[in-house]
Amino acid sequence: MNDNAINPAGPAARVYAETLAAGRFRIQRCQDCDSAIFYPRELCPACGSGDLHWFAPSGRGTVYATTTVRRKEEAGGDYNVALIDLEEGPRLMSRVDGLSPDAVCIGQPVRARVAVEEDQGVLLFDAVEVDRQPEKDHE
């Protein structure tokens, strides 16, 4: 049993973990005040409502803060820990994958990806190429 695995205790945590294990990223939205919510819970922290529905966020996010945790090479080497702001508002902790840890920058656009290993899902983020031709967006 992985010591660091999400322990799906409670209905909301279980839905989140089971959905993630099936390769899908879902978070909650408050039906009363429209706040998007992370991490999963019973009540909306913005208004106290218990009327929360699951939805699929866009997966788009931005690195809000980042650190490289130093680890001996034989133990797996250095790795990234980042706080990601989702496009829908919530902030969460994750790892930006596929880049060397020291190349992860604040403001970097990222996209969510669910990695499934041993029946457990882990939410990770990949760097998104910055669009070098923004004028195309105006066509």
Binding site: D3, N4, I6, N7, F38, T67, V69, V81, M93
Partner: peptide
């Protein structure tokens, strides 16, 4: 448990202050 942070192995509390 902090199931939404621990999977990423932040060295707590230090990594939080580093962030």
């Amino acid at each position: 448990p902090q199931p939404y942070e621990h999977p990423y192995q932040p060295m707590l509390p230090l990594s939080a202050y580093a962030l």
